[in-house]
């Protein structure tokens, strides 16, 4: 018996045609799967534009921008989108005011001060916080935080922007923390060493050298958090109320853009009715706001990312 694998050609006859065919089939199918994401985008944009166009057939664009009431379901309907935007702005501003310092300082703690053991415990706990469904945060905001705050702030109403914003802020803190930590982690050691060699303390090295070097990542994490806060639905629906009110007061019930969409969806709204079209007009506004933020974040990272090799 021959001790070597044979080179006899008659024994090596791969079915090249079959492999080529299966390769082509797999490639086509998986390529089509990849296209689903493009179709999703087309579906979203198409849907929103189509219904928004229908909406503006009935409601003048000028009224949409300038009315100071939002009463689309009343007989004397008014469509001042800024009533809803002012509500979203209130909850989001409070949320970011909470999430920015908490998330950034938490990221600094994790990347610079925490020992490996502490990190091993704290990081999974932050992931748990990040994984809590928003309806649970909504429960917490409405039934725990609001009563708690009311004992300090008697004028605080049962539904209000403050509790919703605070809890919303806590819910996006892990996002800011983990993305900022990634950015801080990416700053090369040599820069820290450079700062220490000049006689910088740890805080001076962090604040003056590491954070500026990680700026693009940190800013993009914050922008992402803002966009998450704007699009968040359940916390603000449950805790901030269903009461459209223009202004800046965080103590009264308000209605955010997302809360309005929920309110209409819960009722039985026939397709083609004005209320149905209204939620798409509001959805389009929401989509555009988050799209602008995403594009800005993309641009900012491109423009300000320092390249270290």
């Amino acid at each position: 018996m021959n001790s070597e694998p044979t080179r006899n050609d008659s024994l090596w006859q791969p079915d090249r045609q079959a492999s080529r065919t299966s390769e082509a089939i797999v490639r086509t199918i998986f390529g089509a799967f990849a296209l689903v994401s493009v179709l999703t985008t087309i579906g979203i944009v198409g849907t929103l534009i189509f219904e928004m166009f229908e909406f503006f057939q009935e409601v003048p664009f000028w009224n949409f921008l300038t009315d100071d009431q939002w009463t689309p379901l009343f007989p004397t309907a008014e469509f001042g989108i800024f009533v809803l935007i002012s509500a979203t702005a209130r909850t989001s501003t409070i949320a970011v005011a909470i999430a920015l310092p908490l998330g950034l300082f938490a990221a600094i703690f994790l990347s610079e001060y925490a020992g490996p053991k502490t990190r091993q415990i704290v990081k999974p706990l932050l992931e748990v916080l990040a994984g809590i469904p928003s309806v649970v945060f909504g429960y917490f905001a409405l039934l725990f935080v609001t009563p708690l705050l009311q004992s300090f702030i008697p004028i605080l109403q049962g539904f209000n922007a403050l509790s919703a914003g605070l809890v919303l802020g806590i819910s996006i803190t892990p996002l800011v923390a983990s993305l900022s930590e990634d950015a801080i982690f990416a700053v090369p050691r040599s820069l820290r060493d450079g700062a220490y060699a000049l006689g910088a303390t740890k805080r001076e090295a962090i604040v003056s050298v590491v954070l500026p070097a990680a700026l693009s990542g940190i800013v993009s994490s914050i922008i992402l958090a803002v966009s998450r806060a704007i699009g968040e639905t359940m916390i603000v629906t449950l805790a901030a109320g269903q009461n459209p009110s223009l202004g800046l007061n965080p103590f009264v019930p308000i209605m955010t853009m997302t809360a309005f969409i929920v309110q209409v969806s819960l009722g039985d709204t026939p397709a083609g009715s004005l209320a149905y079209k209204t939620i798409f007009a509001v959805g389009m506004t929401l989509f555009l706001l988050t799209l602008v933020l995403n594009i800005f974040s993309f641009w900012f990272v491109r423009r300000f990312r320092e390249k270290y090799d």
Binding site: S190, L198, A213
Partner: peptide, 17 residues
Amino acid sequence: VELRRRIGMVFQKPNPF
């Protein structure tokens, strides 16, 4: 920290901030 003010250092790879 005080010591490093008086004994400076230049590194292998240029590391401007």
